[in-house]
Design a protein around this nucleic acid. Structure first.
Lengths: 194, 194, 194, 194
DNA sequence: TATGAATGAGCCTTCATTCAT
DNA sequence: GATGAATGAAGGCTCATTCAT
């Protein structure tokens, strides 16, 4: 009789511990202590320490993408969807600072992030972004002479770096207040209009 | 007979070894073997294994920024400079695939990349990008209603993610051929022109 | 199921191993093997290899002093107490040759013996000796014109050197049989009586 | 053409370095630096680091014994000789505090002191002490019912402990001022005279 | 003789993982 | 399922010693 709560307890404890000490400086026993269980118990729910990190990321990323997907579905057009996606990306991280710390800083270790087991969830996010772009192109709202993959990656990279800078800057300002500027850059470009 | 090249030998060997196995899966003795020296010799030039990684990044990043700075200085205006900066960013990584692997994947570990000892070199790159943007705004080539810091971060993030995706995709295409599209996105924006 | 005996097992194994090879030539894994446990287990009970040596000395010395203290308390006067103290000092070492080897030879390394963490236990022994001397002076059994600290130190030094010589001489005679002579020297002195 | 001065330079440098940091915390390169030579040069004069310690002790001990031997030869009788030997033992250490630190604390390591290569010099000192005792017995000045070996060892042990306590007490008093008391104890004993 | 850069054997300690209870 | 004491592999770093110059 697996206890689904305990799985979650461990994940949540891990987020707090990793955010505090970093992945490599966190011991499995630290996570156990934070979760209020014995360290051996962790191994009834996860095969390795690594699996905790990967699972943590996959679950958080999956719900992140699912939430974003639902939210932008309610927007009237691709333009609004894009703005909302950027705004929510920032808001969600802002409301989950421990999670943000882990994702933006700790999770980038070695090959564990985009490569390997987590690839599917990242791909899902890329697909979500792409679908908005496609919709915009189809609706004549976005230019059709740009390679969508490149736009997708640059947009993700831009948001990701904004988040990372915010974390490294000790979250000393509101990340979500930069969303409009980011959207503006991507939609209108830097070039002065003639 | 002090050998000033040994420092460089070690750095170069480390780049190859880290690119091959990742930082945490590389032993100091692996680097020594790759460099053709004894493992103890490493410690005549570097205090810790960590210092190799940090030094490697600082030196490579510093020369990267210096090279870029000189190259774009020869361009006539901010617009040309921005395009050249993006193109060169990609070309340099393309010509140094081991280095690219290390910088884009291995170096993002924990707090070592943007935080800590490497911060100065990253900041220098951010400043270089900012200076181009400022010049463009002053010359009336770029819009003046965007926060420069945000533009800088998003542009860096976009290039960085393009590079990371290229690495994770096993360098199966030419990164430099995406430079124009990236520049286009940032300069003209996604929005369709009326 | 915490095993309180394991602490003792390790101490006892360490005494045997140190006696055999010396402290610096003993590996932690040797102690573990001698104790029949894994080397990592040692670190559940002791922080460092050094702590094993220090703890070993403190515990043995403390029980040595406690035992001596109780034994001489049963003697009728300071004179008998002094003779008994010397005799027991020798007898105990004689009955614990591994311990004697460690204490007389291995433990004198650097600052670990009289200095540092072990000082308290040595001081306790000095105090025990002093108390006997004071009692003797008060009872008119011992001369009152000698500085007690000096007498204490010389008596301890004399016994200690007797023990060390016995160890270095490979314990080829009975140390305890020299106790009377040592007591005699201290009580009556060398000088011929007129 | 071996340079005898350099041998001495190294020994003297070693005494200072060992006194400062202890034997195990001193690097061969530290001694070289203190002596103003290259570390490789040390190995032209000594086979191993250990040999420096042993040689240092042997030479210092030999001259110590030689000096004491000559000094007490000038005394009229065994009684005066014994008093002078104790006094000089303390005075010499007092005048060579670095040497005293090394001999009393650092040199007691493992089996290197009384055992092994240094035994001869220690034996020579024991013989010197014994010869005084024998002379005293022959002259009727000392009791003839005591085992001379035991008297020798206890006297040496007493002086040695006085010196060690003085070192560990940071030399906060004059060691030589305790010489009379020590001589008194050994000559007259503790026992009150009836 | 003198140098000092180079060598590489050696070991303490950590901590993810296991398993008897 | 839950525990946590026990395991033991793994590797970064030091430093005595060597040797080419």
């Amino acid at each position: 009789m697996p206890e689904p709560d305990k799985h979650q307890q461990i994940i949540d404890a891990a987020v707090r511990v990793f955010a505090r000490n970093g992945y490599y400086n966190s011991r499995v026993s630290d996570i156990a202590k934070e979760a209020g269980i014995a360290s051996g118990t962790i191994y009834l729910y996860f095969k390795t320490k690594d699996e905790i990190l990967v699972t943590l990321f996959r679950e958080k990323m999956a719900s992140f993408v699912a939430y974003l997907g639902e939210a932008i579905a309610r927007e009237p057009d691709a333009l609004a969807k894009l703005r909302r996606l950027i705004a929510l990306h920032f808001q969600i991280l802002e409301q989950n600072p421990d999670m943000a710390e882990v994702v933006q800083v700790e999770l980038r270790q070695g090959h564990k992030f985009f490569r390997g087991a987590s690839a599917a969830e990242v791909t899902a996010y890329f697909k979500l972004i792409s679908s908005v772009l496609e919709e915009g192109v189809a609706a004549g709202l976005f230019r059709d002479d740009l390679p969508l993959k490149t736009v997708t990656k640059t947009l993700f990279g831009a948001m990701d770096q904004m988040a990372t800078s915010w974390i490294l800057g000790k979250r000393s300002y509101k990340l979500s207040e930069t969303a409009d500027a980011v959207a503006d850059i991507f939609l209108k470009g830097l070039a002065a209009k003639p």
